[in-house]
Design a protein around this nucleic acid. Structure first.
Lengths: 189, 189
DNA sequence: CGGCTAAGGCTATTAGCCTTAGCTTTATGG
DNA sequence: CCATAAAGCTAAGGCTAATAGCCTTAGCCG
């Protein structure tokens, strides 16, 4: 039994490949083990928490990836252009890797690593909103609005909920217009 | 082995009860059978497609429930008040029955019954938007924006994605303000 | 009233999955 | 050169869905 030199990172990599190809349902330890050229129980040497932990690690990695994408999109832009770029790149990520994006919400438990990654993602959004003069609680409400719109659009469009022929890109541009206008005229209570 | 007088509707009812209590992951034929006082394979007499069909039926029923709620909220209201009421009742449904709402997207295949139910839901939204003078493609884009915001907010808030202490109701009111303003000033290309 | 049919139960079985336990081999550091 | 920890293995147990085949009940029809 030659050593295959597996690491937790590689295990997650195989998991992501499986998800990309066959969807989150197909993520099973047996399939990951087969792909890694190893017997199923051997995975526990690297991912001691079994399937649950593997899913957790996948969620963390995807969240980090998404946060990176958003940060890159925000880089060098400001105001409406930054909001538009971040929203577009959010949707682009979900569209390019729909299964990976769908694997995101499956982490019910509050998890420290995931919280860190999610914090980075929210940080990018909050930074982009700062230029609208939003501070404190209002920045939080605005960031939630942003995330709701971005996630809803990504989830529904990759999930096939938008059946009609109208172009999704057009929908996205309308959303951007509404959102940027809403941020400029943000309701100050 | 006395007949227990099961119907597909009752099977779905038990499935919903299970989901409400323990989440969508807990929906297994074995658990439903136990709750119905029947052996697992007997369920196939009522739900011939097994677990997949049961999930499908659950999704249809939940979509119908939600559409009913939204229709009721829209009744007798118009304009901004109607939009606000529908958005609030969307979120209220998801909050009252988080697991049930989470069970919604698990129906991947395009399904006729589900399409009908989803059509009713979209119909309510389109009707509410009609008062803003939106027609044709623009009405579609606006309805998509509405759904994205509603679903995103529902999914993220019930999923525990909003960790901070800020009140969710406040966030919702900001969202309503932004959305109604965006609809009134809808971008006419 | 007698019997037939279809529906609604059942048990048994197969196949696939996760997980734990305990053994064996490999690689490495002293 | 050997001891030990890491990384692999097989075996086994306990879930799950799903299929096959049998039995009983209900209800209808002649």
């Amino acid at each position: 039994m030659p050593r295959v030199g597996l690491t937790p990172e590689q295990v997650v990599g195989h998991a992501l490949a499986l998800i990309d190809e066959q969807g989150p349902e197909a993520l099973t330890l047996a399939a990951v083990a087969a792909r890694a050229g190893v017997a199923t129980p051997s995975l526990y040497k690297h991912v001691s928490g079994g399937l649950a932990e593997l899913r957790r690690l996948v969620a963390v990695r995807v969240t980090e990836e998404l946060a990176d994408r958003l940060a890159e999109a925000a880089l060098g832009r400001s105001g409406d252009a930054a909001v538009a770029a971040v929203l577009r790149s959010y949707h682009a990520y979900a569209t390019e890797r729909p299964h990976r994006y769908a694997a995101l919400p499956q982490a019910p438990q509050p998890d420290a690593d995931l919280a860190v990654a999610a914090g980075r993602l929210v940080g990018v959004i909050v930074a982009v909103l700062r230029e609208y003069g939003l501070e404190g609680s209002e920045a939080i409400h605005a960031a939630r609005t942003f995330r709701s719109l971005a996630h809803g659009f990504a989830a529904l469009s990759t999930g096939g909920a938008f059946q009609l022929a109208e172009d999704l890109g057009e929908t996205q541009e309308r959303m951007i217009t509404v959102l940027t206008a809403g941020l400029r005229g943000w309701p100050r209570p």
